[in-house]
Simulated scan of single mutants.
Amino acid sequence: MTSRLAATIGVLASLGTGLSTATNAGAADIVDTASATSTFKTFLAAAKTAGLTDTLKSGGPYTVFVPANSAFDKLPVDTREALMHDKAKLAQIIAYHVIPGKVLVSDVKPGKVKTMEGDPVVLKSDNGKITLNDEANITQSDIQADNGVIHEIDTVIMPK
């Protein structure tokens, strides 16, 4: 690659176009990005059990509201155990945490947004604090992946 082309790609990448000087080798999709921290182990195990890992690795772009391990710990133990053995229900819950498109926190517009599961999630913004369904808070935002963005949340949200 010529140095001029490399410089142009570098400038475009810094502007957020999604281009980078890296090849696809080593690309970090939603699953790989989430796997880089131990904070999302329970979500990743749930996505694997639900059969959604391949979707989160290859599709997109997605905005994924990933409950931290501590969010799953808030669920009663019997509920959490039952979910981890109910592939259909688990798939429904995981899909409820995913919306199509890449939405950064600065782009959040209050209101209902349709999830991959089909039911909407209600987003609210109050002085920079983003909540989902009046129950989950975004605690870490804009974790970039090649096929979307992850926002860490503090509560597992359930579809109606």
Rank of each mutant, 00 (worst) to 15 (best):
5 L>D: 13
6 A>N: 13
8 T>R: 12
8 T>G: 15
11 V>Y: 10
11 V>A: 15
13 A>C: 10
15 L>A: 14
15 L>Q: 15
18 G>C: 10
21 T>E: 10
22 A>M: 11
23 T>P: 02
23 T>D: 12
24 N>I: 14
25 A>F: 15
26 G>E: 11
29 D>C: 03
30 I>L: 10
31 V>R: 06
33 T>P: 06
34 A>N: 02
34 A>E: 03
35 S>T: 13
36 A>D: 07
36 A>K: 13
37 T>F: 05
42 T>V: 04
44 L>W: 03
47 A>C: 10
51 G>F: 11
54 D>F: 00
55 T>P: 00
55 T>R: 02
58 S>Q: 12
62 Y>A: 10
63 T>Y: 01
63 T>D: 06
64 V>M: 05
65 F>E: 08
68 A>G: 11
68 A>I: 15
78 D>V: 04
78 D>N: 14
79 T>G: 09
79 T>A: 08
79 T>L: 03
79 T>F: 12
81 E>P: 01
84 M>A: 05
84 M>E: 03
85 H>S: 12
85 H>T: 13
85 H>M: 12
85 H>F: 09
86 D>V: 01
86 D>Q: 03
87 K>I: 02
89 K>V: 01
90 L>T: 00
90 L>F: 00
95 A>M: 00
95 A>D: 06
96 Y>R: 02
96 Y>K: 05
98 V>A: 00
102 K>L: 05
104 L>S: 10
106 S>D: 14
107 D>V: 10
109 K>S: 14
111 G>K: 05
111 G>L: 04
118 G>W: 04
121 V>K: 05
123 L>N: 09
124 K>S: 15
125 S>T: 14
130 I>P: 14
131 T>A: 08
133 N>K: 04
134 D>C: 08
135 E>C: 12
135 E>H: 11
135 E>L: 11
139 T>W: 09
140 Q>G: 13
140 Q>V: 15
141 S>K: 15
144 Q>D: 14
144 Q>R: 15
144 Q>M: 15
149 V>C: 07
150 I>C: 04
150 I>L: 09
151 H>G: 03
151 H>L: 07
156 V>L: 11
157 I>M: 03
